[in-house]
C-alpha cells in the first residue's frame, strides 16, 4: 500500500518501577494495543526478543501482569560500535474492569508480538432483554 506512513523511531519506554527489581538491568514497558468487543478483550504487545519460555502472563484478581525476559544474544567477543537501543526485560501491568473467563484465556507469541485473548465471563456479556407486553 502506498498510503502507509513512514515509521518513526520510538524510544523504548523505560519503566520507573515503584518496586526495586532483584536483578539489575533496564526494564521496558512494551507498546500495546487493547481492543474490546462484546465477547472479549484482545491485547497485543510488542515484545521483541522474548521467547515463549521467558514470557510470564499472570492474572490475579483483576490485575494482569506481563513479564518478558530476554536472553542475551550477543556473542562473547562482540564489541559495540553503535548502540541505539538497549535490551532489557519487559514489564507491564493492567487492571481489568471486566470479569475474565480465566479458563479460556489464549496467548500466542508470534514474531515478538504477543496476542492475548481474554474472553469475558458469560454473564458479563450484554444481553438484550425484550420486554413483553402484558
Amino acid at each position: 500500500m502506498s498510503d502507509s506512513k513512514e515509521l518513526k523511531v520510538k524510544e523504548k519506554q523505560e519503566l520507573s518501577s515503584p518496586a526495586e527489581h532483584t536483578r539489575p538491568g533496564p526494564v521496558f514497558t512494551p507498546a500495546v494495543d487493547i481492543l474490546e468487543t462484546e465477547k472479549e478483550l484482545t491485547l497485543l504487545a510488542d515484545m521483541p526478543g522474548v521467547t515463549t519460555k521467558n514470557l510470564n502472563i499472570d492474572l490475579r484478581d483483576d490485575t494482569l501482569t506481563l513479564v518478558g525476559d530476554i536472553d542475551p544474544f550477543e556473542g562473547p567477543d562482540e564489541q559495540d560500535i553503535i548502540v541505539e537501543y538497549e535490551v532489557g526485560k519487559y514489564f507491564r501491568q493492567f487492571t481489568l474492569s471486566e470479569v475474565i473467563d480465566q479458563d479460556k484465556i489464549e496467548a500466542n507469541l508470534n514474531n515478538g508480538v504477543l496476542r492475548l485473548k481474554l474472553p469475558k465471563v458469560e454473564k458479563a456479556k450484554p444481553r438484550k432483554i425484550t420486554v413483553q407486553a402484558a
Binding site: E6, L7, K8, V9, E74, G75, D77, E78, Q79, D80, I81, I82, V83, E84, Y85, V87
Partner: peptide, 10 residues
C-alpha cells in the same frame, strides 16, 4: 531513522 539498530563487531 527507523529501525533503531545496534552494531557490533568481532
Amino acid at each position: 531513522v527507523f529501525p533503531a539498530i545496534n552494531l557490533t563487531e568481532d
